[in-house]
């Protein structure tokens, strides 16, 4: 595999892998280093990658295994707080207080989903993986993945609706009392 081929076929995976690595390591600082190591591993094995008909599974497995190694070597502290902190600091990117609150609420909803639902919805909605790629990572059959994804999406929608309906009702009650 030439450098040009690598740039064309493998390097774009970094954009797909970035959110996954960030989620697994739960540490912004280490994400780029880990991703660099993953890309170096793939570069050093670029001739083997050619032998795989579809390198997707190979790339995903190398990435996930590397992240697990990193986690084993260094128990990463913390987590959600850091993510929340990142969202809180969004105004630098032009987000309003309302938007930040909304993002944090959706994060909490996703975090509270059952493991299977959370895993599948993150792979699909955040990482943009197709069903075959998710199957390689989770081991679930595609039909089962569709069911899990459907339930997870509905659950997220219901939770959002419940929170915002509640907030609207609360605001109406407060307005009613004031009037």
């Amino acid at each position: 595999m030439t450098a040009e081929q690598f740039k064309k076929d493998i390097l774009p995976w970094s954009r797909k892998l970035y959110p996954m690595v960030k989620r697994l390591l739960k540490n912004d600082v280490e994400v780029q280093d880990a991703l660099q190591d993953v890309m170096l591993k793939l570069w050093n094995k670029r001739h083997q990658i050619l032998r795989h008909g579809k390198p997707d599974g190979y790339v995903l497995t190398v990435c996930r295994n590397h992240c697990l190694d990193v986690l084993k070597k260094k128990r990463v502290l913390l987590v959600e707080e850091q993510d929340d902190h990142r969202i809180i600091n969004l105004p630098e990117q032009g987000a309003t207080m309302d938007v930040r609150e909304q993002l944090m609420i959706v994060r909490q909803i996703i975090d509270q989903l059952p493991d299977k639902y959370r895993e599948v919805i993150q792979y699909r909605e955040i990482d943009g993986l197709d069903f075959e790629e998710i199957r390689l990572l989770t081991g679930y059959e595609v039909a089962h993945l569709r069911v899990l994804l459907s339930r997870a999406r509905l659950k997220v929608k219901d939770e959002i609706r419940e929170i915002y309906d509640y907030e609207t009702r609360g605001n109406q009650q407060i307005a009613g009392k004031i009037l």
């Binding site: 740039k7 390097l11 774009p12 970094s14 954009r15 970035y18 959110p19 989620r23 780029q32 991703l35 660099q36 890309m39 170096l40 570069w43 969202i87 969004l90 938007v99 909304q102 993002l103 609420i105 959706v106 994060r107 996703i110 909605e125 955040i126 990482d127 943009g128 999406r153 997220v156 929608k157 959002i160 609706r161 915002y164």
Partner: peptide, 30 residues
């Protein structure tokens, strides 16, 4: 509802500018 959820997903898959170039530079340096 969807707008909130999709907004979160989009926020989460934000990737730093020039990520691929930086990673390829790292490979070349090595």
């Amino acid at each position: 509802d969807e707008q909130l959820a999709f907004g979160f997903y989009q926020q989460e898959n934000t990737v730093p500018e020039g990520l691929e170039d930086q990673l390829f530079k790292g490979i070349q340096d090595q």
